[in-house]
Amino acid sequence: DVEPGKFYKGVVTRIEKYGAFINLNEQVRGLLRPRDMISLRAENLNVGDEIIVQAIDVRPEKREIDFKYIP
């Protein structure tokens, strides 16, 4: 289970104008929005990159997770 405030290692699987999709594993995926990329620009991300993200909002009923990148 993903808990708000905890840090996780994930892999960038898709990049859109509104953010990057980060997979923690095959069943868990969330969104890293540009406003939550402190000191990281979306254009510096590539599909396949491994990054550490913090879960900031977890909505299990919608199967949605928002992440924040903190260097």
Rank of each mutant, 00 (worst) to 15 (best):
P60Y: 09
I56Y: 09
A55M: 06
R63W: 09
L40H: 06
I22W: 01
K17H: 12
L32A: 02
F7M: 08
E16N: 14
D36I: 08
G10M: 05
D57V: 13
D1H: 14
I70V: 14
L45V: 10
I22H: 00
A20D: 01
G5V: 03
D1T: 14
I38M: 09
L31R: 06
K17M: 08
E64C: 11
I52T: 09
R59W: 06
V11Q: 05
R29F: 10
G48T: 01
G30Y: 02
Y8A: 00
A20S: 04
S39L: 13
I51D: 00
G19V: 09
V53H: 00
P4K: 15
D57Q: 14
L31S: 03
D36F: 09
E16T: 15
E50Q: 11
Y8E: 01
E16G: 14
Y18W: 15
G48C: 06
I15H: 01
I65E: 03
V11I: 14
I51C: 01
L24S: 01
S39C: 15
T13I: 09
I22Q: 00
D66E: 08
F7A: 03
V11Y: 10
I15M: 06
R63A: 10
E50G: 05
L31A: 03
E3N: 07
M37Y: 06
I56Q: 06
E61L: 08
E43L: 12
G48M: 02
D36A: 05
E61R: 08
I52S: 02
R33T: 05
K17A: 12
P34F: 15
D66Y: 15
D57G: 14
N44G: 13
F7G: 01
N23L: 10
A55E: 02
S39G: 15
N44Y: 12
I70Y: 12
E61M: 07
S39V: 10
D57T: 12
G30D: 04
F67Y: 04
F21C: 08
G30V: 08
V47I: 13
D36C: 11
V2N: 04
N25I: 08
A42R: 12
K9I: 12
R59I: 04
D36G: 07
Y18L: 07
V28C: 08
V58H: 05
E64W: 14
Y69S: 03
R35Q: 12
G48W: 04
L32C: 06
E61C: 08
E26F: 14
N46F: 10
Y18N: 07
Y69M: 07
P4N: 08
F7L: 07
K6N: 08
V28S: 04
G19W: 10
N23V: 11
D36Y: 10
L40E: 06
E50L: 14
N25A: 08
L40K: 06
R41C: 13
G48Y: 02
A20Q: 01
V47E: 04
A55H: 02
R59N: 07
D1Y: 14
N25L: 08
N25W: 10
E3F: 12
V2A: 04
Y69G: 03
G48L: 02
A55K: 01
R14D: 02
K6D: 03
E43K: 11
A20H: 03
P71R: 13
R14Q: 11
K68E: 05
F7T: 05
I56S: 05
E3G: 04
T13P: 00
K9S: 07
V47T: 03
L24H: 01
Y8W: 02
T13E: 05
A42Q: 13
K62H: 08
E3H: 12
I52Y: 10
D36L: 06
V58I: 09
E26R: 13
R59F: 04
E61I: 08
E3S: 11
F21W: 15
K62G: 07
R29L: 09
K17N: 10
S39Y: 14
I38P: 10
I51N: 00
L31D: 03
Q27M: 13
E16V: 13
F21L: 10
P34A: 13
N46Y: 10
E50P: 08
K62M: 12
V12H: 00
K17G: 08
P34N: 15
R35S: 11
N44C: 15
S39K: 13
K6Q: 09
V53W: 02
E64G: 07
F67A: 03
I56C: 09
P4T: 12
Q54G: 02
V11L: 08
F21R: 01
D1V: 14
M37P: 03
D66W: 13
I15P: 00
L31E: 04
G30C: 10
K17I: 13
Q27G: 12
R41Q: 13
I56P: 01
K17C: 11
V28N: 05
K9W: 13
I56E: 03
P34Q: 15
I15R: 02
E16F: 12
R14F: 05
A55L: 09
N46S: 14
K17L: 09
L32F: 04
L32W: 04
P60C: 10
V47W: 03
V12N: 00
Q54S: 03
D49N: 04
Y18S: 06
G30F: 06
E26K: 14
G10F: 05
K9Y: 10
